[in-house]
Write a protein that binds this DNA or RNA. Structure first.
Length: 469
RNA sequence: GUGGGCGUAGCUCAGCGGUAGAGCGCCGGACUGUGGCUCCGGAAGUCGCGGGUUCGAACCCCGUCGCCCACCCCA
């Protein structure tokens, strides 16, 4: 044996054991079906991109967090990189849209569920390799697009069993107008937003201090904070009622009209999104929040972020009307949203939201192998397994001549409900004994009727576990 | 990157200067054609790694690596 190596996966990555994969696939399946219902089409892109495709799209912080791939050969020693792992699914999409502009429909809508990589420091619910579930709509500036995306995301969360999520909504141009109104010029705005984004978490005093450390005098910092501190509802409020949100949104809108009257056309757009959302699955979940900033630099219009109590955010998105232009040379308007698969799973696991059916065993039936089995018996067991599989049962065959008790314990430990026992007595009678490990009962039935016998009992069990609504 | 905590059996952890422990899990037996419950027995650790102090270090000191929490940022 070689020296013991660490067997942990690299920090920020995980192995997914069978139970994990089943839960992930369940969530992905819900996401995919909802997105399909909204007319989005699937897309996949490579794990890595040319590095120039990614650089300069995410802002300064984003650039630093890109996983770079060193050049091979003579450049290996220099640390130079020409490829990089994808950082999100939006920039690769923009590249694809520019590349295949003539083959894609005018209003291209795609979903994409793939891993992305960030050279970040891992934390609770934050990984260096994680899955995003993205939807994006290209080609239209209409707020209908934004609203459909909000609705689709809401429908995913509702279908998964969430009822207390809040989607905060804001607008980049509105943020710019608000900052302008307190004397922050375009150059200092992104820095200021980073500080203001924390209003919800750290409170106004901490943000004022932060701004002062970024070179603001106290008076200007206070003005900034006051301008942004007027979100009516803390987003951490659990189970906010739709009427509370509606009232809060109305009062927020009227205050915004007072604070930045020059931004009235933007406010109209925001209002249109809010109004139309009321008739979709997003109804009662959207909260206009003037302090929402979001880190990615490519957003140009509406921005949104969805969260629930107990975790940073489940996903976010917004409108980016200039990003495709960086590849294409002419702008194509676009709006998208990204749900974080593992964030959703972290919360669902904590809240016990996965159905029992997901924890069902690895197989329905274990065919036991007699300890003194001769060749004929082994072949008979395999033939029986085939017959059971023919009725779509999941069948495992015990491979070694262990004592029967050990074989049954193996089935029991792995949550396999049925064991088929074919011994000398049964063979003589052309019969099998079928033991139900859950009900602790057993019955000897004719060999030829065994598949149907088990099939019926498995079906009955599933009806109990998953009653039709 | 900053601050705090933790690394001891497969897992969760106790021990905090005097020969390495418990619970759970694992293996075997009681139970030669029947899992779970019970009982009996067993295997298992260079106490993260390196150095120092000491008659003696899992324990104290220094360094180092790894993990966790908070900040930061985000999905």
């Amino acid at each position: 044996m070689a020296d013991k190596q660490s067997t942990k996966p690299p920090s920020g990555t995980r192995d997914f054991l069978p139970g994990d994969v089943r839960r992930r696939e369940y969530v992905i399946d819900v996401v995919r079906r909802v997105y399909e219902r909204y007319g989005f089409e699937p897309l996949e892109t490579p794990a890595f991109e040319n590095i120039d495709t990614l650089l300069g799209k995410y802002g300064e912080e984003g650039n630093k967090l890109i996983f770079k791939i060193l050049k091979r050969g003579e450049h290996e020693g220099t640390g130079e990189a020409d490829l990089a792992l994808r950082y999100d699914l939006t920039v690769p999409l923009a590249r694809v849209v520019a590349q295949y502009q003539n083959e894609l429909p005018k209003f291209f809508k795609r979903y994409q569920i793939q891993p992305v990589w960030r050279a970040d420091r891992p934390a609770r619910g934050r990984f260096r390799e994680f899955y995003q579930c993205d939807i994006d709509s290209m080609g239209s500036t209409s707020p209908i697009v934004d609203v459909e995306i909000l609705s689709a995301v809401s429908e995913v969360l509702v279908t998964l069993g969430f009822d207390d999520f809040t989607i905060r909504l804001n607008h980049r141009q509105l943020l710019a107008a608000l900052l302008e109104s307190v004397g922050v010029s375009a150059a200092g705005q992104s820095d200021t937003l980073v500080a203001l984004d924390k209003l919800d978490k750290t409170g106004p005093d901490a943000v004022i201090k932060d701004l002062e450390s970024r070179g603001f005098d106290h008076e200007k910092a206070s003005r900034c904070v006051n301008m942004f501190a007027s979100d009516a509802i803390r987003t951490t409020t659990r189970l906010p009622s739709p009427s509370v949100f509606a009232a809060a949104n109305m009062s927020q809108l009227s205050r915004l009209h007072q604070d930045v009257p020059e931004a009235s056309s933007i406010l109209d757009e925001v209002q249109a999104i809010l109004d139309m959302s009321a008739d979709t699955q997003a109804a009662g979940h959207v909260l206009l929040s003037r302090s929402l900033a979001r880190g990615l630099s490519y957003y140009t219009g509406a921005i949104m972020e969805v969260g629930v109590e107990g975790i940073g955010s489940l996903g976010g998105g917004g409108r980016y009307d200039n990003l495709i232009g960086m590849f294409l040379g002419r702008d194509v308007p676009a709006c998208g949203f990204s749900l974080g698969l593992e964030r959703i799973i972290v919360v669902m696991t904590e809240r016990n939201m996965f159905k029992d059916a997901l924890s069902l065993g690895s197989a329905d039936v274990l065919v036991t192998m007699w300890p003194d089995a001769d060749d004929a018996i082994r072949r008979d067991a395999l033939a029986l397994a085939s017959e059971l599989r023919a009725v779509d049962l999941r069948v495992d065959v015990y491979p070694e001549p262990d004592k029967l008790g050990k074989q049954l314990r193996y089935a029991s430990d792995r949550d396999v409900q049925f064991a088929v026992i074919v011994g000398g007595d049964e063979r003589a009678k052309k019969a099998v004994t079928i033991k139900d490990l859950v009900a602790s009962s057993q019955e000897t039935v004719a060999r030829e009727s065994a598949p149907q016998f088990i099939r019926e009992r498995v079906d009955a069990g599933q009806r109990t576990k998953n009653p039709e609504p």
